[in-house]
Each structure stands twice: as structure tokens, then as C-alpha cells.
């Protein structure tokens, strides 16, 4: 895994390249949860954002790389801390080198059809405010996502939470 991270008083970001393997999903989730909490995101939303990352990476492994563990996934997570003036904001960009899928084929399944599988895209679109899949110029896919919270009225709570980490 390659990783670099930055953390200032107003924002945090992390970039990492990991093998497309379920063995790394826990690491990705934990990183996302810690970065989110550090930006004042509550436990419920932090967990949801970690779930979105898990689903996105899992879809790349299963569908894009067809189960291969030898390929890499690049992730960039950026967070803006909540303040009285601005809500927290988490931005995620995931890039792969997998085969390109027709963009109109990436859709949620009908939830009335109760069956195992196919929930990942629905969860991603339900949880995030924005989720945009696109083709990369030199091959592979990119998924850009954003989620924003409500403005906080108590900045002390945010500071206290970040010091606990």
C-alpha cells in the first residue's frame, strides 16, 4: 500500500493505492472512518461513508477486475471540517484500470425484487449526495463522490471529537 496523508486545522486528505483485494477493505474502512470523525462527521455518517467505499471497491474487484487480486485501486479522500460557517464535506475519488463499463449500465436494481446481490450501487447513490462514474482517458473507470453535512452550531464539540482520536 502506498499512502500519503495531510491534516490541517481546516481539512484532511489521504491518498492511497491498494491491491483490489478484500483483505484491504478493513484498512480502507478504518481510514475513512477516522478521517470523517476528524472532520466532525458523526458515527452514523462516518459508518455510511465507509460502507460506500467498501461497496465501490468491492464492485471494482468483482466486476471491473473480475475477481483478480493482482490489480490496483487508487483512492483519494478529502475532508473539510465542520465549523459554524460551513458544514463538513467529504470528497472521494476512486480510480481503477479495469475494463470500461457502459455508464448507463451502472444502475440500482429494483428494490422490490428481493434477491441477494446488486445492492452496492443503490447504497452508494442513497448515501452520497453525488456519485458520478466516468471513463478515464487512458482506460479504466473513475468514481467521484461527495457528501456534505449540516452546519454545526458548536465548534467545541468538533474540536473535542478530533482530540479524542
Amino acid at each position: 500500500m502506498q499512502m500519503e496523508s495531510k491534516n490541517t486545522t481546516c481539512s484532511a486528505s489521504a491518498k492511497l493505492s491498494v491491491p483490489a483485494s478484500p483483505a484491504w477493505y478493513g484498512t480502507i474502512r478504518n481510514l475513512a472512518i477516522q478521517l470523517c470523525r476528524n472532520c466532525g462527521v458523526d458515527d452514523r455518517d462516518s459508518g455510511s461513508i465507509a460502507l460506500v467505499l467498501d461497496e465501490a471497491v468491492s464492485n471494482i474487484h468483482r466486476h471491473g477486475y473480475q475477481g483478480s487480486h493482482d490489480e490496483m485501486i487508487d483512492l483519494e479522500i478529502k475532508g473539510i471540517k465542520a465549523t459554524p460557517e460551513q458544514p463538513w464535506k467529504i470528497t472521494i475519488c476512486i480510480k481503477d484500470r479495469a475494463m470500461q463499463i457502459e455508464l448507463d449500465k451502472i444502475k440500482s436494481r429494483d428494490l422490490e425484487d428481493v434477491r441477494p446481490g446488486g445492492l452496492g450501487v443503490h447504497l452508494i447513490k442513497s448515501i452520497m449526495d453525488t456519485a458520478i462514474w466516468s471513463h478515464r482517458k487512458n482506460g479504466g473507470m473513475q468514481l467521484f463522490m461527495e457528501k456534505q453535512g449540516e452546519p454545526t452550531t458548536n465548534v467545541a464539540d468538533v474540536e473535542k471529537e478530533s482530540k479524542l482520536l
Binding site: 474502512r29 465507509a50 460502507l51 461497496e55 468491492s58 428481493v114 441477494p116 445492492l119 452496492g120
Partner: peptide, 17 residues
Amino acid sequence: VKYMDSSGIATLIEALQ
């Protein structure tokens, strides 16, 4: 269980069916 992803949900749906 604190965390479950869609593969866990799929397992429960299979069992239900």
C-alpha cells in the same frame, strides 16, 4: 455486529429465501 456490507445483506436474503 457493528458493520455489515451488502455481501452480508445478501447472505441474510439467501437464508431468508
